[in-house]
């Protein structure tokens, strides 16, 4: 595989061995092109989250390289927003202060950050809850705050680690739509880890399916183009066909795990 010129991040032959001897990834290749919505899908424990952590620079690969062809410098953390499975908000801070955190850590005062905080909260539809504390919000709203926080630095790349796994279906559907709208508005690139076939089929412009541990990409499926989906997309034949194909490939990966 040659490096695509437009790749935002490119992972080449990445191997990650944890200190306890477990090999999480082996021979992992992935190019992320600007503007894409890539879903990483795979059996549990296949190293999906590890991929995100490697891209974010929170962990270093044992072997292989992670390159940012389009940008200079070594420090790409300012271009990355990270959303965890839990909202991981600071319970002692108001919504606005939680969104402020990444800017605050970069030395931006509360007053200078005010507009940016308001913008970010407006993006996720929480303008009225700036003064609320996380405890006072529902699970879906907390996740929105978490997304607003990740967006406060206007990242080029948004990394999301099973962000909606703990939410009920209604909240998840709504957040899925909002996420697609946000991507269209902000023109950012999203790498989305999930274990839901349907979520990946709905959201992604590309679905990368991983093998069981040690994880590598076994198949890539082209999804719908980035952008908002028509209202009846969830019941369309295209969606059913996409979900079917993803499920099939995913099922072929699981027997290797449990013989």
């Amino acid at each position: 595989m040659t490096q695509l010129p437009s790749a935002l991040v490119s992972l080449r032959d990445v191997t990650k061995v944890f200190p306890n001897g477990v090999t999480a990834l082996a021979g992992f290749d992935l190019d992320i092109v600007a503007g894409e919505f890539v879903s990483l899908l795979g059996p549990s424990g296949c190293g999906k989250s590890t991929v995100l952590r490697l891209i974010a620079g929170l962990a270093q690969p044992t072997e292989g390289s992670i390159a940012w062809p389009g940008s200079t410098g070594d420090d790409h953390r300012g271009e990355i927003g990270f959303v965890f499975q839990d909202p991981t908000l600071m319970p002692w801070s108001s919504t606005a202060d939680n969104v402020w955190l990444p800017l605050r850590l970069r030395g931006v005062s509360r007053r200078d950050a005010r507009d940016r905080i308001a913008e970010s909260l407006a993006l996720v539809g929480l303008s009225d809850f700036a003064k609320a504390y996380p405890r006072e919000l529902s699970g879906g709203m907390r996740m929105r705050v978490s997304i607003a926080r990740a967006l406060s630095l206007r990242p080029r790349l948004l990394l999301m680690d099973e962000p909606f796994a703990a939410l009920d279906e209604i909240a998840r559907f709504r957040l899925n739509d909002d996420l697609l709208r946000l991507q269209a508005e902000l023109r950012c690139t999203i790498v989305f880890v999930t274990h839901s076939v349907y979520e990946s089929a709905y959201l992604s412009s590309r679905i990368a399916i991983m093998s069981g541990r040690p994880g590598r990409i076994v198949a890539e499926i082209r999804g719908e183009r980035p952008g908002e989906r028509p209202k009846d997309f969830r019941t369309s034949a295209r969606f059913a066909e996409l979900s079917g194909r993803i499920s099939q490939i995913l099922l072929q990966q699981t027997p290797e795990e449990r013989p």
């Binding site: 974010a56 620079g57 420090d75 990355i80 990270f82 955190l101 850590l105």
Partner: peptide, 15 residues
């Protein structure tokens, strides 16, 4: 929260 510490490392740690 361990995730908060990671977030901190992502946004706040010096280069």
């Amino acid at each position: 929260d361990r995730n908060l510490m990671e977030l901190f490392e992502l946004y706040g740690a010096p280069a």
